[in-house]
């Protein structure tokens, strides 16, 4: 647990990062806010991430989810918010930390990966290489939520 306290101190010292424990006395559940990257259909939207820390952390990766039915993305299960990202599974390394994890998810928004779709609708569009349709569908989803 002392490693989490260290991470907490480092993150707290930076003021441009929206990553914080849900309550100050419990470092097992964190929330993060990420901003839709420019030049993507996510631009202008903010997304909330729910992070829960397993007991074995950092030997086990943190569990990260979007809010349910909030993130239309080929690597995110729209219904549950579950994220398919290699470093959250088999490619996790104990030298990664929460900040790196959140930044990787932010990067996933601008670099969707067709090889591991959790959103079949978007996966098919992407596989067919129809970026315009992909982006439009994402925008439609986001618009509908407002």
């Amino acid at each position: 647990m002392s490693r989490l306290i260290k991470e907490y101190k480092t993150i707290n010292a930076q003021d441009d990062i929206l990553l914080f424990p849900e309550t100050a006395d419990n470092l097992n559940n964190w929330t993060a806010m990420i901003t839709g990257p420019p030049n993507t259909p996510y631009e202008g939207h903010d997304f909330k991430l729910y992070i829960s820390i397993p007991d074995a952390y950092p030997n086990s990766p943190p569990m990260v989810k979007f809010h349910r039915e909030a993130m239309p993305h080929v690597n995110v299960n729209y219904e549950t918010g579950e994220i398919c990202l290699d470093i959250l599974k088999g490619e996790w390394s104990p030298v990664y930390n929460l900040l790196y994890t959140v930044q990787s998810i932010e990067r996933l928004l601008s670099e969707p990966n067709a090889d591991s779709p959790l959103n079949l609708e978007l996966g098919i569009l992407m596989r067919e290489g129809d970026k315009t349709a992909y982006d439009s569908l994402v925008r439609y989803y986001l618009q509908r939520q407002k």
């Binding site: 067709a114 779709p117 079949l120 596989r127």
Partner: peptide, 10 residues
């Protein structure tokens, strides 16, 4: 089939 669906072959 379940695995193939996951890969997008619906």
């Amino acid at each position: 089939l379940h695995e193939l669906h996951k890969l997008g072959y619906t």
